[in-house]
Design a protein around this nucleic acid. Sequence first.
DNA 1: ATGTTAACTATCTGGTTAGTACGTTAGCGC
DNA 2: GCGCTAACGTACTAACCAGATAGTTAACAT
Lengths: 221, 221
Amino acid sequence: MTQPVEIPAEAVADEPTAPAARPPRPRNAERTRARILAAALRDFSARGINGARVDAIALRAGTNKRMLYYYFGSKDGLFRAVLRHRLTEQAPPAAQRDRTSAGRIANLQDRMADSRDYVRLLMWEALERSDRAAIENEDLRRAAFDDWVAAIETAQRDGTIPADLDARQLVLSELALAIFPFAFPQLTRLVTDRSPSDPAFKAERRTFLERLGAHLTHREA
Amino acid sequence: MTQPVEIPAEAVADEPTAPAARPPRPRNAERTRARILAAALRDFSARGINGARVDAIALRAGTNKRMLYYYFGSKDGLFRAVLRHRLTEQAPPAAQRDRTSAGRIANLQDRMADSRDYVRLLMWEALERSDRAAIENEDLRRAAFDDWVAAIETAQRDGTIPADLDARQLVLSELALAIFPFAFPQLTRLVTDRSPSDPAFKAERRTFLERLGAHLTHREA
DNA sequence: ATGTTAACTATCTGGTTAGTACGTTAGCGC
DNA sequence: GCGCTAACGTACTAACCAGATAGTTAACAT
């Protein structure tokens, strides 16, 4: 007998239930599309591309499987749409990004703490789509990172950030410091004895990241 | 029609083939167990718990599915055995661990570069088993990390490593810096324009990590 | 009011898969 | 040589699931 493989409680999207016995809602393409995307975000984040069930997503969206194929063509197409949507809709406005203050890494970690689903999406992307020649929304993402790198380089010329550190490697490292605890909660628990979602953990790590930021800032600045 | 979901080329364990038309090998429990573990490591690393196929693992091991259940009880039991095996067999001897030199993070990253399969195993563990109350081999792993933390704390008392940084948070951060690029190759490519397996990337990052290590070392030391 | 099409639903299909029932045999102790 | 058990093999089942087929209906334009 196929045992449906158990799903991590922490990550789980609860059993999908249609959002009430549906009195035939008026037709509304945008609304249906949006509901499918939202449902897919939940399930893909919890179970990945292979693990998510197309029927479950449709049920959660209060529609049926056919609509999903109608709008997104395939399961993989839906995943790409989810990633694209999460990337464009939830990105913080470019203007108000803190990339050079001493507390920047701590702030980034706070953003990541509120984006656990996005972190998991990135992990599934890495594991289940790592071959795909094209990275989803490559241009957009690359532009955002280039922007970030440029901000670091400016700060290096200003003397705020040590100039001996390669800017791109530094960006990668700041991402690593902010994302890693949420990506590997089991390692976080083993090392620090706290769950990454524990407010005490976040506070401790904030303090740590602020001090680390201080060590990575020229004193004469 | 079920399209077997495509698998990342980079991560792929090639199609399993029985290791020759088998003239009935003499019975050998240890050898069979070991072959199953090795095959399972490949497939679980490439495709995860849900994604790996029990029949494919058995075929690759040159045995059949029944043997796998005979020795490991279930698919999940096999995954746990693989993790346990990888943890105990491949861990570097406790004596020769470099935890406090300025190049320690760079060295750790080199170890991780040779352990891509292990990194992926940790990711699958995080994604597909994050609820399990018990972390696999918790005692062993916790002990190894405690050891590491203690080494850092000693170095802090010696003044080699800044004492204002929480030792546990620092261990977590060093893991993050060393593992992240291999865990998220797509982000690494977006940020640095290089694949993490590219020798040029590894060299650049080594330089970076060494300099970062220097910034995290008291000058007066 | 009528035709057209976008939006929507119900049901089927062909292939896959974890786990099992049940049978066979090698090798060891005596 | 004999019996016992660990080691091994075959074939099956019950369930699952992505995607397809074949429709129906609401809304809008003319």
